[in-house]
Amino acid sequence: MEGPTEVPAPVQAAYSYCEAVTGRQARNFAYGIRLLPTDKRQAMSALYSFSRRVDDIGDGSLAPEAKRDRLERTRELLERIRRGAVDEDDIDPVAVALADAARRFTLPLGGLDELIDGVLMDVRGETYETWDELKTYCRCVAGAIGRLSLGVFGTQPGARGAERASEYADTLGLALQLTNILRDVREDAVNGRTYLPADDLAKFGCTAGFYSTTPPAGSDFAGLVHFEVRRARSLFAEGYRLLPMLDRRSGACVAAMAGIYRRLLDRIERDPEAVLRGRVSLPGREKAYVAVRGLSGLDARHVTRQKLRGRA
Results as ranks from 00 to 15, higher is better:
residue 159 A to P: 01
residue 299 D to T: 14
residue 23 G to I: 13
residue 31 Y to T: 12
residue 93 P to I: 00
residue 161 G to I: 11
residue 139 R to E: 12
residue 248 R to T: 15
residue 188 D to C: 07
residue 41 R to C: 06
residue 192 G to A: 13
residue 90 D to V: 00
residue 186 R to V: 14
residue 110 G to K: 04
residue 43 A to Q: 04
residue 90 D to H: 11
residue 302 H to M: 10
residue 206 C to T: 06
residue 207 T to S: 11
residue 310 G to E: 06
residue 274 A to C: 02
residue 202 A to V: 10
residue 27 R to Y: 10
residue 210 F to D: 15
residue 177 Q to N: 07
residue 79 E to M: 10
residue 93 P to A: 00
residue 256 A to Q: 10
residue 180 N to D: 10
residue 193 R to G: 04
residue 177 Q to K: 03
residue 285 R to M: 15
residue 235 L to I: 01
residue 167 E to T: 12
residue 117 D to G: 04
residue 82 R to A: 13
residue 188 D to W: 02
residue 214 T to L: 12
residue 47 L to G: 10
residue 173 G to D: 01
residue 56 D to N: 02
residue 312 A to H: 07
residue 217 A to L: 11
residue 130 T to F: 03
residue 165 A to K: 01
residue 73 R to L: 11
residue 168 Y to F: 15
residue 165 A to V: 04
residue 54 V to R: 00
residue 264 L to G: 05
residue 162 A to V: 11
residue 305 R to D: 09
residue 54 V to F: 00
residue 255 A to I: 03
residue 168 Y to A: 08
residue 9 A to E: 15
residue 258 A to T: 09
residue 199 D to R: 13
residue 4 P to N: 07
residue 265 L to G: 01
residue 175 A to S: 09
residue 306 Q to M: 02
residue 256 A to V: 09
residue 291 A to H: 03
residue 142 A to H: 03
residue 104 R to P: 01
residue 69 D to I: 12
residue 240 Y to S: 14
residue 208 A to D: 09
residue 279 R to F: 02
residue 40 K to V: 09
residue 38 T to N: 14
residue 69 D to R: 12
residue 189 A to H: 07
residue 302 H to W: 13
